[in-house]
């Protein structure tokens, strides 16, 4: 739509200033070695570097870990009163990296298609996103380039690209994005597209970890595996804790339950994050568990990310290569290593 130029300081100050008007989330240092998307105050220090993927991805702001869907009450005359709890408050998520932007793009598909999810869509519609390009791999775990998410831009209202000159290229992609810039007085940039190409060319040639197979071939490779000792190899130490699911920007499964009030006729229905690595995930009424072993669960998880959902949606791997799962698994089970082994195994 339109491009502007700004200094890093200008951009950082502008984001702080947005926090005086709106609820703004930004990746904020947490603990000894982590970041979390946290609501910032107008006086907070906004700094784009250093960065490593937040503990949970920004999509947590669109599908919270726990949310109330509606309240209910059975009346004595047989009527059922329902009051939905849709959240349509306006927020800004700033500093969203390309992998997480791709994650949100995919989540948009999952929650729109089929049975549209009003809770997700209400939040999504009222969330402005300010993306930020990466220039160097943020950790040694990432493989975003190998799964085609490093250059993802779609879904951001504004997208910021740091240039070699030290300036920031500000791309406004939506009216809402332009609106967020109204308090600034940034000069337009005429040669935005050329500068973007320049910024991409200035990145290291091998960006993060790569696969010895191109991205289009991945689903075909993964499809070849069903009975394979590789699933056992990559779950031998698994705790079935579900961390890999819960920290993933493209895992969307949830569990729904009712919380009764003491009168046992009223209460609320809530949903919470669920995950296919958790032992009871595929257990059905009557007690049968379709995937009682971690290896079967791991196969399912990898196939969802690299075979089933790519085939269903046609937007490439449903893993954005952020490396969160591998880094946060306490026993170092890394989806990159699994896919790497599948590629290797297929060759021999």
């Amino acid at each position: 739509m339109s491009d502007f130029l700004a200094s890093l300081t200008q951009v950082q100050q502008w984001i702080s200033s947005l926090a005086a008007r709106y609820t703004v989330f930004f990746p904020t240092p947490h603990g000894e070695a982590n970041y979390r998307f946290t609501a910032i105050g107008a006086d907070d220090d906004v700094r784009f570097a250093p960065y490593r993927p937040t503990i949970t991805p920004p999509v947590k702001l669109l599908v919270p870990a726990r949310e109330e869907l509606f309240r209910f009450q059975h009346k004595e005359d047989g009527d059922l009163l329902l009051s939905p709890s849709v959240d349509s408050s306006f927020r800004v998520i700033a500093g969203v990296r390309p992998c997480d932007l791709k994650g949100i793009f995919l989540m948009d598909l999952f929650f729109e298609r089929g049975v549209a999810d009003p809770y997700y869509l209400a939040r999504r519609e009222n969330t402005a996103i300010i993306g930020y390009a990466c220039t160097t791999p943020c950790t040694d775990r990432v493989f975003c380039a190998a799964v085609d998410s490093l250059d993802h831009r779609q879904g951001a209202d504004l997208f910021l690209t740091p240039l070699a000159s030290g300036e920031i290229l500000v791309e406004a992609n939506t009216e809402r994005g332009i609106g967020l810039l109204d308090s600034t007085d940034l000069p337009p940039c005429e040669d935005g597209p050329a500068r973007k190409i320049g910024a991409i060319a200035a990145r290291p040639e091998t960006y993060g970890r790569s696969f010895d197979a191109d991205v289009q071939s991945l689903s075909g490779i993964v499809e070849q595996y069903w009975d394979s000792p590789l699933w056992d190899k990559h779950t031998e130490r698994c705790f079935s804790c579900g961390t890999c699911n819960l920290v993933c920007p493209t895992c969307y499964c949830f569990d729904v339950r009712d919380n009764l009030a003491l009168d046992t006729v009223s209460g609320s229905r809530t949903r919470t994050w669920d995950g296919c690595m958790l032992p009871g995930f595929a257990q059905v009424a009557g007690g049968h568990n379709f995937r009682p072993q971690p290896a079967g669960r791991q196969r399912h998880r990898v196939k969802r990310k690299f075979e089933y959902l790519p085939t269903k949606y046609g937007h490439g791997p449903v893993c954005v290569g952020c490396g969160r799962c591998g880094r946060q698994c306490t026993v170092d089970i890394d989806i990159y290593d699994i896919v790497h082994d599948l590629i290797e195994g297929g060759k021999s």
């Binding site: 947490h30 070695a33 503990i55 870990a65 726990r66 804790c241 579900g242 961390t243 819960l246 032992p279």
Partner: peptide
């Protein structure tokens, strides 16, 4: 539910104790 404390830790977005 028979799930591990890690599950709740992640939902609470705690920094992992190992970190």
């Amino acid at each position: 539910p028979a799930v591990a404390v890690c599950t709740e830790c992640k939902k609470n977005e705690n920094e992992c104790v190992f970190d």
